[in-house]
Every structure is written in C-alpha cells, then in structure tokens.
Amino acid sequence: MTIVTGKAEARRRLQSGRSGALRQIWEHRADYAYVLPAIAVMLVVIAYPIYYTIELSFFKTPPGLQLRDKTFVGFDNYTTILTSEVFWRVTWNTLIWTLGSTLIAFVLGFATALALHREFVGRGVLRAILIIPWVISAVAASYIWKWIYHSDFGIIGAVLVGLGLADRPPNFIDSVSTVLPSLIVVNIWREFPFAMIMMMAGLQTVPEQLLRAAQVDGASAWQRFWHVTFPHLRNVSTVTILLLAVANFNSFIIPWIMTGGGPSNASHIWITHIYELAFGRQRWGVASAYSVLLFLTLMTLGYFYVRALSGNERQEGSA
C-alpha cells in the first residue's frame, strides 16, 4: 500500500513537474524565441559537425577514394590510433606541452600579478607592456619566434656566439630534443599575460582588512600570502588553470607554423597530428576518431571548469 502510494505520488509529481516546465516555457516563450536563432546556429555549426565527426570515426576513408565511398569499420579507427607508436609519442608531447605551458604560464602570471599588485612608479606602463604578447597575433608571433630561434641566423644564437658563450648558434627547433621545450617557451611567453590579468583581477577581491588583521597578529609575508591571499584566489586559480589547459590542449598555431610538427614528429601534438592526418593524408576516418578522443578529453576538462565556476558561484552566494 505504501509502495502504491509512493508510486502514485511520484507520478503526480512528475506530471506536475512536466506541466510546470511546459507552463514555464509557455510563460517565457518570448525569451525562448529570442534565443532560438542562436540555438539553431549552434545546432548547425556545432552539434551537426560533432555528430558527423563521431559518425565518420567509424568509417574507413581510403585516401585514393572519395569520402562518399567510405566503408564501415566499427571501432577499427580507434584501435589503429591506440595501437600506433606515433600516437603515444604525440600523446606524450601533448601532455608535456599542455602541462608545461599551463603550469609555467600560470606561475609566471601569478608572480607577475603579485608584483604588479603593489603600488610603484610606472606600474601602469609595465602592465601595458606585459600584456603585449597576449594581444599580438599568434601567427605573427610564431613567425617572429621562428626567426629568433633560427638555427643558423637567429638573434639568440648570434648574441651567444657574439658574447663568446657558444661556438655556433644553439639548435632550438631543428633538434628532436630541444624543439618541444623551445615551443613551450614561446607559448608561455604568449599566455602568461592572460594568467597575470586573471590573477590581478582575483587579487582585487582579497579583503584588505583581513591582510591587515593578519599583519597585526604577527603573520609573516609568506603566512599572509599562504593563509589569507591564496585561499581567496583558489577558485580564480582553478578557472585560470583550466582555461589555459583547454587552450593549450587545443593549441594549433604555434607548433604548426613554427615546425609543422617536426622534426621527425618531435613537436606534433594531438591537434596538429589530427590536422596532418585529415588534410595532409586524407585519413578522415582516423582523424575523426582522433578528434573524438580530443573532444572527450576537452569535455572532461570542461566539466571540471564548469564545476569550478559553480564552486565560485556557490561561494559568492554564501558570502
């Protein structure tokens, strides 16, 4: 009897919920009408490509045939990728690239934000100068850095040789061992201003009176930072790190323009490898499967990003 009552109650709630939701939609029909074009565009330019990529990932697309001549192969493309030696090498590169770029850019941006948080003469000018790498076009920056690093006539090599610190210019981007760290340096140079701006905004939210109270209580500078400043910045730090990680995972321009993933695949990361497989080698099926893996990875990062944002909102709500 109790069970029957429980089921009936649940059905009633469900029906009431449905009618409530429909009623709400009806009441807000004008709002929905306003966002409908945006939703329609998103379905066309985002949802359909995602669906088609997933579909294509189950087909073999031989390079000598048209795409319409594809054949269904189930999970073969995923197996091909996961058993490929190059894939694991490129995955390792991607992890080094993403973690290295994200963490160092964050630490550097945070340190710069802390330094610029204090009042000093020329702070505004310095802040403007430090933002330049972030606003420069990534394409232009890549070409400039390619010449800075040039293994024969780069300015770094010329300075080192000129100062007698090296016999010949160092090999930055034509060596399998140095190419990835060299590209990471460029990426950090471009991204740390973003972390700096985010953390500077975060620093504005740290209550001054708390810092003063801690100082009165005898807390050292480090203790004030660790126990007062940093806890206030935890959420903005998480969001910054996640945004940087997503951007880096998906970062195409710098590695593609500077090295094209070379030499010998040493600077290929997932996204450049996918591009080469699709557009250079026309393995649309394999490239699509690869893209699905990238999509899932980014969605995972996105989930944590949304959770971090929700945490922020809850914290602000409770405060």
Partner: peptide, 11 residues
Amino acid sequence: RDKSVPVSALT
C-alpha cells in the same frame, strides 16, 4: 657527419 649545410634545413 659534416655539418656542412644549414642546421635550419629541417624547418
């Protein structure tokens, strides 16, 4: 072996 060509040949 000879390092007689531009090092930058790969890029």
